[in-house]
């Protein structure tokens, strides 16, 4: 029994569509609107602040660098979470994120015997492309958080949340500027983002645990992970090449269906 109407149909039934704002409780007061604007304009500065702080800590050899930068990632991830929560998301925002995060975690579990196949980055990138930069960040951050419930939480969790979130966010930004219309750019981004992910995680290690930081020590720390990062990058490129178009079609189809769902609620 199919009862899925196609997206271009006009609703002819007079349902309660006019009087309900989809997903929104009430018209927010002016002060709360101001706060919302303030919080959402803080996203980019906070995203940039994390690597900036890492750099500053490394340069000045700050004593409590590990703790300071960790707190910064908490602030960054927290800001995105709070903004998402305040946007009173409807089903079309919530459901795709939930499914994609679950998919990323399940595939990470299923492919655990093949450590080089890490589809999480590819899924974050797709989420950013199809559902926008904020959803991209949410998918990345939540995937890291939830999959670590299976693989073990640690001080790396906030960093993975930040780094994968960033991968999704930047993918969203690039995609809105049409950068991915050229498939080469997509592949390059896939590779670079995986390297960047590794770079961020290694940098935290260097800043927090190498003291005093010297060039050879830092190089060693980065070098130790480079093989994994290149494998991760290659896997992401291969995965993206295989799934980008077919999954994009599937996701856009589901996006249209959810838009209808929200219109009816």
């Amino acid at each position: 029994m199919t009862r899925i109407p196609s997206p271009h149909d006009q609703a002819t039934v007079a349902m309660r569509e006019s009087d309900v704002v989809p997903g929104g409780p009430a018209v927010p007061a002016r002060s709360s609107r101001l706060l919302t604007r303030l919080l959402s304009s803080a996203e980019v500065p906070v995203l940039v602040a994390v690597p900036l702080l890492l750099g500053v800590c490394a340069y000045f050899q700050v004593d409590q660098a590990g703790l300071l930068t960790l707190i910064m990632t908490f602030v960054c991830v927290g800001l995105f979470f709070v903004n998402f929560e305040r946007s009173s998301p409807g089903l079309r925002q919530v459901m795709p994120i939930v499914v994609l995060v679950a998919l990323a975690c399940a595939v990470r579990i299923l492919f655990a015997p093949f450590p080089s196949v890490k589809p999480v980055s590819a899924i974050c990138i797709l989420a950013g492309v199809v559902f926008g930069r904020r959803s991209g960040f949410m998918v990345g951050a939540l995937s890291a958080l939830v999959s670590n419930f299976f693989f073990g939480q640690g001080p790396w969790t906030p960093w993975q949340m930040y780094a994968w979130g960033l991968v999704g966010y930047v993918a969203g930004v690039l995609s809105t500027h049409g950068a991915f219309e050229h498939r080469g750019v997509l592949s390059v981004y896939g590779f670079v983002s995986a390297l960047g992910y590794g770079f961020i995680l290694n940098s935290w290690y260097v800043v927090a645990y190498v003291h005093p930081i010297t060039v050879p020590a830092a190089l060693l720390a980065y070098g130790a992970g480079i093989v994994f990062d290149i494998m991760h990058g290659t896997a992401t490129v291969v995965f993206l090449a295989a799934i980008y178009l077919p999954w994009k079609v599937k996701l856009e189809r589901i996006q249209r269906k959810y838009a209808l769902c929200d219109a009816k609620t």
């Binding site: 029994m1 009862r3 109407p5 149909d9 609703a11 002819t12 039934v13 349902m15 309660r16 209808l260 009816k264 609620t265």
Partner: peptide, 15 residues
């Protein structure tokens, strides 16, 4: 199914 969902306030199909 159509007959039943037609009576439901949110599951009612469009048409």
């Amino acid at each position: 199914t159509t007959l039943l969902t037609c009576a439901h306030p949110v599951l009612a199909p469009r048409g």
